[in-house]
Every structure is written in C-alpha cells, then in structure tokens.
C-alpha cells in the first residue's frame, strides 16, 4: 500500500490549473510550477500577468541577447513586457494586490489545511533565515488563491492536513489545490476531491492525505 503511484507530472499539473484561468483576468503566478501555468492557458483567452516587483503585462522569457537585467520578475529572472504593459512602483503594485484588483494568484505550498490555511514561507526551524517576500500580501489581498503542489513531500509526508504545523502565510485563504494526484476544492465541509489524475483511485489519494477527503468526482 506504500507503493508510489505517479499521477500528473509538473507540466500536466500546470496545464490542468491553466484550464481554470478565465478569459480577461489579472493573474499573479508564484515561482516554480505556478510559473508554468502561463504557457498552457487555452488559446483564445487573454490573461494579463502581474509580477509584484512592478509590471502588469509580463510576457515570456526573452532570448539571451534581448534580456535586460532591469526587466525581471519577482523571482529575479529576466522577462519581457507585452505591448500594452505598464510599469509601476512597489506601493502601487501592492495596492493592486491588497486592494483586491488581482483576480487569481497561483502559489506553491509547503502545507495546506482543510480550512484553507496556507504555509509556504518557513518551516519554523530555529536556524532558518526567515524570508517572506510578497506571499503574505498576496494571500491576504488577491480575490482567489489557487495552490499547485506535489501531494506529498519527498519523504512521503502529507502536505494536505487537518491543520498546518508550519507557521502560516495566511488563514483560510486557499480555495483550490492542484496536486500530482487530484484537483481538490476547499469548502466549509473540508477537502472535496473534484477530479483525479488518470489511473489514480480516490482511496489512494485519501491514504496520502492527513485529513478526511470528500469524494465529489
């Protein structure tokens, strides 16, 4: 029963999340798998990407000879600006976030609780250098928070829990989780599995989760 069954890979997780990004919305994507969502948004939809260091209308990574070290994303990687993009300072950028102007934020997670609590900035270890960046502002201000994460840590522990042990980034903020095994809504009743990756059984997802799952597939 402890055999690891493979569900969606990282690209497929991003692709699955991208299906749920509606036409015309303003989206902030976190570092890692969330960044990949941009390349899978279905054709015909126009989505504007916000990067909190000061750009609305972020485009793809330019060729090395077209890169500008002063045109970067929140992960400090070179990006481009689409025609129609805008630059702004940090206070305006976080007014967009805190003022509920950004529609969707897709983030990574260390832990998610069944009430939507998110922990993604610190393990709380004594020797860790605390670093939070904009994560707490994003989860407090963006209208809808999606998480993309592996269902379990590398050592097999659950990341979806009744209650997070790590220090929180925000309280009851996550509305949906995309993992390698399933798509899971967070509702007043708790974790509701709405879709399973190919060849993944509900019972297997339940075994790998430290909270009760409700089967809505």
């Amino acid at each position: 029963m402890n055999d690891i069954i493979t569900g969606w890979n990282r690209e497929q997780m991003a692709q699955r999340a991208a299906v749920d990004i509606p036409d015309g919305c303003y989206v902030n994507l976190g570092i890692g798998i969330p960044e990949k969502v941009a390349k899978y948004v279905p054709e015909g939809r126009e989505v504007i990407y916000h990067t909190e260091n000061g750009l609305l209308g972020m485009g793809s990574t330019p060729e090395p000879d077209k890169q500008d070290p002063e045109l970067i994303n929140a992960g400090k990687k070179p990006v481009s600006a689409i025609p129609g993009a805008a630059y702004f300072h940090h206070a305006d950028s976080f007014a967009m976030i805190r003022g509920h102007h950004i529609d969707i934020c897709v983030l990574g997670a260390m832990q998610v609780a069944e009430n939507g609590d998110l922990a993604n900035w610190s393990t709380g270890a004594a020797d860790a250098i605390p670093a939070v960046g904009g994560a707490m502002d994003l989860v407090a201000g963006v209208k809808t928070i999606y998480v993309i994460t592996q269902h379990n840590t590398r050592d097999g522990s659950a990341k979806l829990l009744k209650k997070c042990d790590f220090p929180l980034t925000g309280q009851a903020v996550v509305s949906r989780v995309y993992t390698d095994l399933a798509v899971i809504n967070i509702t007043r009743q708790g974790f509701e599995v709405i879709e399973l990756a190919p060849d993944i059984e509900f019972d297997y997802v339940q075994q790998r989760t430290d909270a009760k799952l409700i089967n809505k597939t």
């Binding site: 206070a91 939070v132 904009g134």
Partner: peptide
C-alpha cells in the same frame, strides 16, 4: 539584526 516585513507592507510603510 533583522526586522522581517512582508514586501507589500514594507512598500506601504515607506509610502
């Protein structure tokens, strides 16, 4: 010493 401040709160405190 470190005073850790979320990025948006840092920007707004300065503003």
């Amino acid at each position: 010493e470190l005073e850790l401040v979320p990025q948006g709160t840092l920007a707004e405190r300065i503003r």
